[in-house]
Amino acid sequence: MTDTKLHLNREHALHLLREMLRIRRFEERCAELYTEEKIRGFLHLYIGEEAIAVGVMQCLTPEDAVVATYREHGHALARGMPMTRMMAEMYGRQEGCSRGRGGSMHLFDAASRFYGGNAIVGGSLPLAVGLALADKMRGRQQVTACFFGEGAAAEGEFHESLNLAALWQLPVLFVCENNLYAMGTALERSESETHIFRKAQSYKVEAEAVNGMDVLAIEVAARRGVAAIRAGGGPRFLECQTYRFRAHSMFDAQLYRDKAEVEAWREKGPVLRFGHWLEETGMLDPAGRARIEAEIEAELATAVAFAEQGTWEPVEDLTRDVYTERLA
């Protein structure tokens, strides 16, 4: 059972910062590795949105389930997936968390109930509904946290899933990461109702908008939501207002937004803001910050080395895991 209240001591505050920084540094390294052609395919960076995954994950137990999108490095790290296996997956090595078959967009980990890594916008919401349905039918007090972007709100599966979750009172925490752009299409150019949480309310799902750049605000809202869900209150919905600092993917020239807009949001950045606050309150000094950065750098170095030393799956195994191989 998770605590319903946020207990903000120094240790927890530094943990939040460290978790956000782990995501930030991991992805910065991924971008470099992409230009070095170590990582290929699509690479969608979460930089700027770290507070959401980190804030929400604080409220989940190991038995809870997580369903995420193709911009899921942050969620996987915050969920506790080892950085080594994640980086190996980015490389496509068989030591990766999905044995290299998935890559950046399809991180999976059955052990931590991390159900992807889903790259069809809106397509993962019904899965979250089903996972929660299974928990409810089995009488388990578990929550499924389902992360998606605001672009998903335009898909039919978003509406079908909210209706089903509300109708059947399923234990789903819907977390909308509203970064204002569905790839390059601005929210006001694609939605008649730009307050996504109001769409959820129309399905009688309790919903609220939260400052997605504030890790504490996210954790407080998520704790409240998860507690209500565990108490049998049906689904909850958080619209986290955030911003993606980097391009949609590595192929995106960002012709659709002004540099000034990006800069304005960077100043509101979750890592920057929270770091300043920790310094102001005296919880963190430059030496402490340097220590955290060094620890993360060491973790990253280990992860990159692990991926570099990883091996390629033999081509003879190409058709493996299409179906379950059963012993005769």
Binding site: A65, Y115, G123, L125, P126, L127, A128, V129, G130, L131, A132, L133, A134, D135, M137, R138, G156, E157, E160, S161, N163, L164, L167
Partner: peptide
């Protein structure tokens, strides 16, 4: 409800959930 994608996906999710 008449939500083929929603309930089929829910079936897939429920199957993953045991």
């Amino acid at each position: 409800p008449l939500s083929e994608s929603g309930f089929t996906g829910a079936g897939i999710g429920a199957a993953m959930g045991g």
